[in-house]
Deep mutational scan, measured.
Amino acid sequence: MATDAALRRLLRLHRTEIAVAVDSAFPLLHALADHDVVPEDKFQETLHLKEKEGCPQAFHALLSWLLTQDSTAILDFWRVLFKDYNLERYGRLQPILDSFPKDVDLSQPRKGRKPPAVPKALVPPPRLPTKRKASEEARAAAPAALTPRGTASPGSQLKAKPPKKPESSAEQQRLPLGNGIQTMSASVQRAVAMSSGDVPGARGAVEGILIQQVFESGGSKKCIQVGGEFYTPSKFEDSGSGKNKARSSSGPKPLVRAKGAQGAAPGGGEARLGQQGSVPAPLALPSDPQLHQKNEDECAVCRDGGELICCDGCPRAFHLACLSPPLREIPSGTWRCSSCLQATVQEVQPRAEEPRPQEPPVETPLPPGLRSAGEEVRGPPGEPLAGMDTTLVYKHLPAPPSAAPLPGLDSSALHPLLCVGPEGQQNLAPGARCGVCGDGTDVLRCTHCAAAFHWRCHFPAGTSRPGTGLRCRSCSGDVTPAPVEGVLAPSPARLAPGPAKDDTASHEPALH
């Protein structure tokens, strides 16, 4: 009773807030009518008042009428009001819900409408889902798969039609296919003929059939049928067999079959498995989609049935006599038709004709302190090069084509190399640097090759510096006499390219 009084008091307290929050009759008014909170006449009256005075006034009048009803109607109103779709449509209802007392429970059932309790003993237990329907569909599909699609060729003596089998029958139906081979029951999904010589313990000319048996419980189990008994694959494991010639990621696949039913060829011909030897223990289905393919039931050349050999690369099948050149017997292992072999060759040939990528240039590290003349020119003028003790990398590039010797140069053309002071002394051009340390401070000019250098860098042994005729380390061993002091540049003949010694390969005349 306390809860009923509290709900009535809360409705009177929030009546105006609810009326202002509800700006549309749908969905709240319609939901109240659906849950029998508002009768039909009051529903029509509220809609009429909404058209006349507006939605807030109409709902305020409806809530005032609701306060005169019993506690069950008020409880049902609060339940409908706080439904998710009403809270989404009328956003101003959320503060009312947040301020609702926590001790007021809106989930209690309506009085007088409590459903009768059902004894637990009368409640049926839930049924577990079964796979009976899938099993029945598999039974119905198996006879259809064994139905012949056409008439065999005159040369083929193997013609068999499976008798119709009602689904209610649980007995196995067997077809006489000759040579002791028996087909599987209607619940078998796949059958492959297997030679009895590969099964340990088999006697006589009995041949087993590799099947997948579907049981009534819905589970499946792969086994071997020899005669009327089934054997699990673990009985046929043979770890010492060295003649297993397995197909790549293979499961067994029928390579020879008669049109209309699988079996042995007439005249004692023995149908073979995809792999010879003992049956392997793992009978998992292969991951290669080509091995799941269903080959055609007629020859791809003459479009006739009979004894066919199936290609492992495509769905086509052929007569042995229709092949070019014809085959006398079934080859062992994987067999592919000429079209598949030709496609494989065409895929391999473009790969062989692809040009080989060019090898990157060989990189040879230079000892610290040495650099090529090109690196000396590329440096920024007026700045010493940083990191001189790091190992430089010199790339061996292809030799350029031989060019004509340089033409003779006048001494005026070499004027930018040297600057003559007032006393006739050779001065260095701006930006000249030593080729060893890279520093341009207090550098000297070689009178023979006009290269800038430090005496301490080229002659670290402490050799005394002569007063005139300074030469760098590369030119100090040259027998050519030094030019007379005061000459602007060496003779043009000295600039012609010539053979250089091994220790002077990195010091070429550089223009500054």
Rank of each mutant, 00 (worst) to 15 (best):
A2P: 15
D4G: 02
A6R: 06
R8G: 01
R9D: 05
R9V: 02
H14L: 01
H14E: 00
R15L: 04
T16K: 01
A19S: 09
A21E: 06
D23E: 10
A25H: 00
P27H: 03
P27G: 02
H30F: 02
A31T: 00
D34M: 00
H35Y: 07
H35D: 00
H35Q: 00
H35L: 01
D36C: 00
V38G: 00
E40L: 03
D41K: 00
Q44T: 03
L47G: 03
H48V: 15
L49I: 00
K50V: 06
K52S: 08
E53P: 00
E53M: 05
G54R: 00
H60K: 00
S64V: 01
W65R: 00
L66H: 03
L66I: 08
L67S: 01
T68A: 03
D70L: 00
S71E: 12
L75W: 15
D76C: 04
D76Y: 03
W78Q: 00
K83H: 03
K83R: 01
K83Y: 01
E88L: 08
E88F: 02
E88M: 02
G91D: 00
R92H: 03
P95H: 04
I96N: 03
L97T: 01
F100E: 01
D103N: 05
D105G: 05
L106V: 05
S107R: 13
Q108D: 15
R110E: 11
G112V: 08
G112H: 09
K114W: 14
P115L: 13
P115T: 05
A117W: 14
V118H: 15
P119K: 14
A121Y: 15
V123H: 13
P124G: 13
P124S: 11
P124L: 11
P124K: 05
L128F: 14
P129F: 04
T130N: 09
K131I: 01
R132Y: 03
K133Y: 01
A134M: 00
S135F: 12
R139D: 05
A140K: 07
A142I: 09
A142G: 13
L146H: 05
L146K: 09
T151C: 09
T151W: 15
A152Q: 08
P154V: 04
P154R: 05
G155M: 15
S156Q: 05
A160C: 11
P162N: 00
P163F: 09
P163A: 03
K165A: 01
S168R: 14
A170H: 15
Q172F: 15
Q173W: 15
R174A: 07
L175R: 11
L175S: 06
P176C: 15
L177N: 05
G178Y: 15
Q182R: 14
S185L: 01
S187Y: 02
V188K: 07
A191S: 10
A193E: 04
A193G: 07
M194V: 14
G197V: 12
P200I: 06
P200A: 06
A202F: 04
G208Q: 13
I209E: 04
I209D: 06
Q212F: 04
F215Y: 05
E216V: 03
G218E: 01
S220G: 07
K222F: 00
C223S: 04
C223Y: 05
I224V: 05
I224P: 04
Q225D: 03
G227A: 04
G228D: 11
G228A: 04
E229P: 06
E229D: 08
F230S: 04
Y231S: 04
D238F: 10
G240F: 09
S241V: 08
S241P: 14
G242D: 09
G242P: 04
N244E: 03
N244Y: 13
N244S: 14
K245L: 04
K245W: 09
A246I: 04
R247L: 08
R247H: 00
S248I: 12
S250K: 05
P252D: 08
L255A: 08
A258M: 04
K259D: 00
G260W: 12
G260N: 12
Q262W: 13
G263Q: 00
A264W: 15
A265I: 09
G267L: 09
G268P: 08
G269Q: 08
E270Y: 14
R272S: 10
R272F: 11
R272M: 14
